[in-house]
Design a protein around this nucleic acid. Structure first.
Lengths: 225, 225
DNA sequence: GCATACATTAATGTATACATTGTCAAGAAT
DNA sequence: ATTCTTGACAATGTATACATTAATGTATGC
């Protein structure tokens, strides 16, 4: 759960951010263990805020803290990926439906439209990294339009958990050119106020994405570390 | 996220349990603030494990920790209830579908059937408390049969958040006699391996439950503290 | 009399010392 | 040689002392 509210910048929250960066950058590889003392030295603070940050990240499903074994960066298995994609499918589809129910105007949908434009631009330049960022923004903005804060935080948590895996697979698969038609279709359904279509199109989009990714992972026998 | 794994019984986890009990029993009323020092004295331990427990509970959406204002027991608004019920509807319906896809035998479904029997028994004796427990067990067992651990933990979190509100409304509404037919229908659909029907019946069941509860809350103008 | 500035205080945030406990290794006995 | 036991060590878990900071109250000046 994202606790990105008006929390002050104490060392504990700074530790959360820094540890997240270290995890996503691969500096702390999945499956590895790290003692609290080491992490504290690395972050330039005492054990207390580091320990608190570790507990927060544990609640978010990114690490596990084990006595005398340190903080373990949780690996992600294919089974985990399936679980996460199923949750994302269910929640995002509902968000798409509820977004379409709210009679948003073009003003409100500008941000969502922008992410699609960004994806198309990135596709044109064969820029996978920017495409991934824009795709992430699309999903984030979609659930924001859905208006359910708990869906937002849950989706954000799950997206975090697969972020590292996506970085690995991003360059394995063909460029997702089909994807953009789906995105536009979802946007249009929301703009036209067609909840059933918005939900269904997005659900299909998600199911395809899941199948593609799972197939890729199973074929390449990647141990998602 | 339920961290009910093999975690050792350290004071930190004990503090989580005790604080949860205090919250659910109403000893710590919703909306109230409590200083870390007071809570520590109350639980018979130092501030450190109490503070860690507060952070865990914050990640679970039960409290908010604010500098110099202590640990705030989060109140639940009608809007919150709607959000939570929508998430539960989406995730539990998917769980019902996936449970039906797994060709469970009668052995596997015995626990689920038992919760329905319990609910019927409680209804017969007009025992709302036992009915509520059995109903809780039904939903827990359903998502367990779905097989997605992330759905399990997310549903458990959301169920926790509405637990206090349910205690309030339990004696306001009429006895849910209709409910049991729905439960049996879901069980049968899973036993027969009919995913579409399992999902749809449960979704309808959830939507009705939501409408009933929201209507009740709005009418009685309950400030869900 | 009101406003502003400063001081006091009380609570969180942090560091560190200490207690507890599991792990690992070394040695002895079978 | 292998296994069991024992002990030292090292890392977490906990308590507490200390630093920081925001809020409140008081005093002073305008």
């Amino acid at each position: 759960m994202r606790t990105d509210e008006i929390r002050p910048k104490n060392n504990s929250t700074i530790a959360v951010e820094k540890l997240r960066d270290l995890i996503f950058s691969g500096a702390l590889p999945a499956g590895s263990n790290h003692l609290e003392t080491e992490l504290a030295k690395r972050l330039g603070m005492s054990r207390t805020p580091v320990r608190e940050a570790a507990l927060t990240l544990e609640a978010q499903g990114l690490v596990a803290v084990q006595a005398r074994k340190g903080v373990k960066i949780l690996p992600i298995s294919v089974r985990d990926m399936e679980e996460i994609y199923d949750v994302l499918t269910a929640l995002e589809s509902m968000a798409a439906r509820q977004a379409a129910e709210q009679a948003y105007g073009y003003e409100d949908l500008a941000a969502l439209a922008q992410t699609i434009t960004d994806m198309e631009a990135a596709l044109g330049e064969n820029d996978r990294d920017h495409w991934a960022v824009a795709d992430d923004n699309f999903h984030t903005e979609l659930v924001r339009l859905g208006g359910n804060r708990r869906v937002m935080s849950t989706v954000a948590m799950m997206a975090d958990q697969v972020r590292r895996a996506k970085a690995v697979t991003l360059y394995l698969r063909p460029l997702p050119s089909q994807s953009n038609e789906d995105h536009r279709a979802v946007l249009e359904a929301i703009a036209k106020g067609d909840p059933a279509r918005a939900e269904e199109v997005h659900r299909m989009h998600r199911l395809e994405a899941k199948d593609t990714l799972i197939a890729l992972l199973t074929q390449s026998r990647l141990q998602m570390l």
